[in-house]
């Protein structure tokens, strides 16, 4: 392993001096104490660290769900922390994909409809939605499962549907928050294989939070957080 001080390709994301404080006065809690890093296009970054180290906070800020208390967040050169709530929502809609630990599919809704959801908000036609959703489901290996609802799918399959939903819009950045946390090791490996393939073959930039060292090995780069700061930032010499 070597220390990666510079980014891999063109910079997609730049964080500089980002802090985040929750609460005020005596109860104030500093979740981030000055975070700097750059993520290039087509990177596959694993963020690790103990609970409370600030990795979830970083995820929320990168995902435009939260804003930093101070510091700058550049997404393709845009100062995200200066955007309005609505503009951040549009940024999410057009450039980001989310995968969660708990899958977060809509209940009583078919896999197809779940995957179509982001396209619905983009205002795409019904036929375009259909085609794109089928393609995305096929890319995650779920051809033939389109009509199944969340209750009829295994955990691994649900996470695949969630990944299909995240990539159906061809996002610039895929954010995955402990994507294997609710799965057994075998299923977790399969999901990581899938993410790895999507990164390599489709060139999707991925940022993943995990606390399992084994899963981090699939990434090309590992950033470790401790107490709201980046403790180490290393590139995997050989990824799995």
């Amino acid at each position: 392993m070597t220390t990666a001080s510079a980014s891999f390709g063109d910079p997609l994301i730049e964080l500089s001096g980002v802090t985040k404080t929750y609460g005020r006065g005596q109860a104030a809690f500093q979740a981030l104490r000055g975070v700097n890093f750059v993520i290039g296009e087509e990177d596959f970054v694993a963020v690790m660290g103990p609970s409370g180290s600030g990795k979830s906070t970083v995820m929320n800020i990168l995902g435009c769900l939260d804003t930093p208390t101070s510091g700058a967040y550049l997404f393709r050169g845009v100062r995200v922390e200066r955007l309005l709530r609505k503009e951040r929502a549009l940024l999410r809609r057009h450039y980001l994909g989310f995968v969660f630990q708990g899958f977060n599919l809509l209940a009583r809704t078919s896999a197809q409809e779940n995957v179509e959801l982001p396209l619905l908000y983009r205002g795409e036609s019904s036929s375009a939605r259909h085609e794109a959703a089928r393609a995305a489901l096929s890319a995650v290996g779920l051809s033939g499962w389109e009509t199944h609802t969340q209750a009829e799918l295994s955990g691994g399959q649900q996470q695949r549907v969630a990944i299909a939903r995240a990539i159906v819009t061809r996002p610039a950045l895929l954010l995955a928050d402990e994507p294997t946390g609710n799965l057994d090791t075998q299923c977790g490996r399969e999901i990581m294989e899938l993410l790895s393939v999507l990164n390599r073959e489709k060139g999707i930039t991925i940022l993943m939070v995990t606390h399992e060292a084994e899963m981090a090995e699939y990434a090309t780069r590992v950033i470790r957080f401790v107490d709201g700061r980046v403790e180490s930032d290393v590139r995997n010499r050989e990824r799995r």
Binding site: G63, L65, R85, K86, A89, L90, R92, R93, H94, L96, F98, N104, L106, A107, L117, P118, Y121, R122, R165
Partner: peptide, 16 residues
């Protein structure tokens, strides 16, 4: 609430 959270994360606007 969760469903609304998913929609907002996916990029639904408040107005939508």
């Amino acid at each position: 609430t969760r469903e609304i959270g998913i929609r907002l994360a996916i990029g639904a606007l408040e107005g939508e």
